[in-house]
Design a binder for these strands. Sequence first.
DNA 1: ACATTTGCTTAACACTGTTAAATAATCTAA
DNA 2: TTAGATTATTTAACAGTGTTAAGCAAATGT
Lengths: 200, 200
Amino acid sequence: MASKDRILRLKEETRVNILEAALQIVKAEGWQALSMRKIADVIEYTAPIIYEYFANKEAILLELNRQGYLKLSKQLQEAKDKHTSPANQLEEMWLSYWNFAFANKELYQGMFGITTSCACKMVNELPEAELPWDIISASIGELMNIQDMDSDIICTKYYTFWSVVHGLVSINLLDRGDSDKINRQVLRDAITGIIRSITP
Amino acid sequence: MASKDRILRLKEETRVNILEAALQIVKAEGWQALSMRKIADVIEYTAPIIYEYFANKEAILLELNRQGYLKLSKQLQEAKDKHTSPANQLEEMWLSYWNFAFANKELYQGMFGITTSCACKMVNELPEAELPWDIISASIGELMNIQDMDSDIICTKYYTFWSVVHGLVSINLLDRGDSDKINRQVLRDAITGIIRSITP
DNA sequence: ACATTTGCTTAACACTGTTAAATAATCTAA
DNA sequence: TTAGATTATTTAACAGTGTTAAGCAAATGT
């Protein structure tokens, strides 16, 4: 019976190995260079065994995205916990969002870029993709004294925040951003501006 | 001699046909489904002759992007021409930018999404990618009474505009946007907000 | 009419994701 | 311990990708 456990543990281990190998390749050569055979090479197997752990390549990407959302959510929560006032929490969280994007370029591109065919489908299959929304909109609701988290007004404000931050991030990931100084200034200006505009 | 002209005209025509076929496939099946053999099918040739007109697939994408930037620039210019005051021009142009993105989803995704490996390289090879910047920052400069188009302040303001609009666009292209009503409100709020903040 | 260039296709190479069949290794039971 | 059954892993193959080289056929120049 214990041997079964060992085998199960080994299987779980190679599952993790597959994901780590995938991320390693993506970090080294980019999403476009990720192939099943390359993953197999890294974990020292042949390609078909990967299909014992994942239905297909898409499933691997989906799992990486899921982990990305979890990591982002964790960092957002930690940022939030540093302050008590919603305004400070929001500022800290969006800066943390910004930092996450650049500390995890590839992950972020997988989550919000267009990695495969249509990222839309993916997100609909990932409940974790809603976690960041939950954490941040709670602060918005508190700041604006609104209980209903699904109200249009919170929705709107969340999108405003997200748009400017995500926009700034994508532009920089596309290598169109200028100096880091300018970026940080735009980011801070925009965030504080929005916060001021919704502070009663 | 005239026959040479006819042949040259025919060659130019199939070059155009290749690009049109490519765009047609992308619109019908998405960027990921675009292949040389499919293009050849549409123009009723075999794949290798495409290489008589374009160095490789990348070159076709590059040309499509170029056309995208030109089309966008034209629409921005038309929007600008509708008004005389810089503030009104800016609002009209950014709304026009928004409309372009959704009237030309695929083109926009090719231009600012991550179609191939790394869009960075592409943009550096496309002088046309700077046209929108030229047109819009001229209005920003006029509004702020600044002559030097390369000044940091104009740069910063341009990025602020672009970030919020592009962010909102990408989010909606990823199918994460809610109702069109909310989007339009966020867009207008953000644009007028930025304009107010830089109006002397 | 012959030679040469041009236009175009077929064949091939090295990849890609994915599946089915064949083999090697392990475990189970007599 | 050995025979049989399971499981783990690989090899081979299919259909697709971008791309290149070789071959053929038709038009052109002399």
